[in-house]
């Protein structure tokens, strides 16, 4: 249940402003792909375009194609709701629903898919929470509010919520930037386990994180304020961090820029 993503000439707009220009890249199934780059370079925008969350912002739209194993998710007649059920997402700030218990949070997506039986939902919740490495920590407080957990636990609840619906792809938008180092480590370990089953794309500001968790890395950059972001280079993570082709990539990963 992991699919390949092919991005072809993707440009992303907010109204008339072109935020990202002409990105072409591919994301391998059952691997972790990292997007790195300075703030405002459009890496999060590209990520959000991959499950059609970009267009949720009023006025936002894209041009180009995003293929999920041959199917263009921007093709005519494609329902964005279906796309989002296939491609899960984890956000920068942990965002469990504050009005729901831990359990209800994890099964929220399953409920949306029409699963109603209580026992099945409980089983699925346990499976997802075990998958997110959180089961032992929360099994005694499944009916407590999700917002009462620590930040790292909340983020893993969000990951459990995303994988509960068994998506083809998991998108992570700076999933550790609001977390302490210990929680970050837990999430990184989790990503290492999830890569066997899912196609994972992670946006991160933390280059060590990118080098630790990902197989392939894309470097995005902007040439100036108001200019669109572009994909500068995409290669194996090892190559990007040791011997990149582009001078700009080298400057960034060695800390001479940004």
């Amino acid at each position: 249940m992991a699919k390949r993503i092919e991005i072809e000439s993707l440009s992303c707009f907010y109204g008339n402003f072109k935020a990202v220009e002409d990105v072409t890249l591919s994301v391998e199934p059952k691997s972790v792909t990292a997007f790195i780059g300075p703030s405002g370079c459009g890496k999060s925008t590209v990520l959000r375009a991959l499950n059609r969350m970009h267009e949720v912002t009023p006025g936002a739209h894209v041009t180009g194609r995003v293929l999920l194993d041959q199917d263009d998710i921007y093709g005519p007649g494609v329902d964005p709701v279906q796309v989002r059920r296939t491609i899960g997402m984890v956000f920068q700030r942990p965002n469990p629903f504050p009005t729901m218990s831990v359990l209800d949070n994890v099964v929220a997506g399953l409920r949306l898919n029409g699963m109603k039986t209580k026992s099945t939902l409980a089983e699925e919740a346990e499976r997802a929470l075990r998958g997110a490495g959180l089961w032992d920590e929360v099994k005694d407080r499944l009916h407590r509010p999700g917002a009462g957990l620590s930040g790292g636990q909340q983020q893993r609840v969000c990951i459990a919520r995303a994988i509960a619906v068994q998506p083809q792809v998991l998108l992570m938008d700076e999933p550790c930037s609001a977390l302490d180092p210990i929680s970050t480590l837990a999430i990184e370990d989790l990503i290492a386990q999830l890569r066997d089953q899912y196609t994972i794309v992670i946006v991160t500001h933390n280059m060590q994180q990118a080098s630790r968790v990902s197989e392939r890395t894309g470097f995005f950059n902007i040439s100036g304020v108001g200019q669109p972001g572009k994909l500068i280079e995409m290669d194996s993570t090892h190559k990007i961090f040791s011997n990149p082709t582009e001078k700009r990539t080298e400057d960034y990963v060695t800390g001479r820029f940004g």
């Binding site: 969350m53 709701v81 989002r84 059920r85």
Partner: peptide, 9 residues
């Protein structure tokens, strides 16, 4: 966005 990303209408 959490709800939308889960595939909520």
């Amino acid at each position: 966005e959490a709800a939308l990303a889960l595939g909520a209408t």
